[in-house]
Simulated scan of single mutants.
Amino acid sequence: MKAPSRPKKVSTKGIQLTPLTLNKRASGKNQFITTSKTLKSIVGEIAGKVPTLIKPYLKLTAAKTIVPDKGLIRAINCSHIFPENPNIEFLTGSNGKSGTLQLEMVNLNYGDGFAISFGVSTGFPGQWKISSNEAPNTFINISPINQSVDILIPEIKNKIGTLLINLEPEFTYTASSWSFNEVTVRKLSF
């Protein structure tokens, strides 16, 4: 499968989930997460309006998997969890699946907007499949080795309260592995 060349806005039930294709790997001090400055320009390009404020909302790792009243992560079919490093390792199982990282955000309100960045690592080609309880699947090409998989939710248009987002790879080859390093959620104001 090949990811779409331009991000497609996908929405159902009041959620618009847009993958942000930045065409470069994350780098710098934090090699896994896209900077707020970069997010501001790409969000402005896609949403048609530049955010006036991007502020930290939630950051989760293997060392901190839950923030009460904001959200949590689950590692489904992972092979190792290293809270001291912190990262979560996934290996391809006998069923050909390579595990899923699940982000659950709670206490969401009408009008909230978010930029979500998953910091991941893999040396294998394929695509990241992003799915949600509120929107259809979307895909972003894997960019080895360290990558920030970025998603935009410009505005929540209903009272969902909870949002579940799944990140899982669809590798080109059966024997593959990947690591989750962190997820950073930033709240957007327009």
Rank of each mutant, 00 (worst) to 15 (best):
E134V: 02
T65R: 13
P83G: 02
A75N: 11
K40S: 04
I42L: 06
G126H: 04
G44I: 00
Q102G: 08
I88T: 01
L17I: 01
A62G: 11
S11D: 02
N85E: 07
P136S: 15
T61S: 12
P56W: 07
I76Y: 09
L39W: 02
F90T: 01
A62I: 08
A135P: 02
K37Y: 13
N77G: 11
G123Q: 10
K40M: 11
K24V: 02
F114G: 04
L20H: 01
P19Y: 02
G111N: 13
V67E: 15
F118K: 00
K129W: 10
L17N: 04
E134I: 06
S131V: 01
T34H: 14
G96D: 10
N109H: 14
T52Q: 13
P68K: 15
K97G: 13
K13G: 05
G44Y: 01
P86E: 04
T34P: 13
L108Y: 07
L20N: 03
Q16N: 13
T52L: 03
N23G: 11
V10Y: 02
L60K: 03
I54D: 02
K64H: 15
T122N: 03
P86M: 00
E134N: 09
I88Q: 00
R74A: 08
M105L: 12
E45V: 02
T52R: 09
F90D: 06
S117V: 03
G123S: 10
R74P: 05
Y110E: 15
K9W: 11
Q102F: 07
L72V: 12
G113D: 11
S36E: 06
V120Y: 01
Y57I: 08
G96K: 12
K9S: 14
S98P: 09
S79F: 12
E134A: 10
F82L: 03
S117F: 08
V10L: 06
F118E: 01
L20G: 04
L17W: 00
A62S: 14
Q127R: 08
S11V: 07
K29E: 00
N87A: 10
N95L: 14
I33G: 02
F114S: 00
F114Q: 01
V120C: 05
I76H: 09
S98E: 07
K13Q: 01
S41V: 13
T122G: 00
F32Y: 03
N23T: 09
T100E: 15
S98F: 13
A26G: 00
F118C: 02
M105E: 04
S27A: 11
R74E: 12
K9F: 12
E134L: 09
F124T: 03
E89S: 14
P83Q: 00
L60H: 00
L108K: 04
P68F: 11
L39P: 04
P51N: 04
N77S: 15
F118P: 00
L58T: 12
T100S: 15
N107K: 06
V67G: 04
T18P: 00
T18Q: 00
G71Y: 12
L39T: 02
L17R: 01
V120L: 08
L58C: 14
Q127S: 07
F114Y: 05
G126T: 08
K9T: 10
T52S: 10
G28D: 07
L22D: 02
T61M: 11
L108N: 07
S117D: 12
Y110A: 14
F114L: 03
T65P: 09
P86Y: 01
T52C: 06
T65Y: 11
V120I: 07
S94E: 11
P51G: 06
Q127Y: 05
S131H: 02
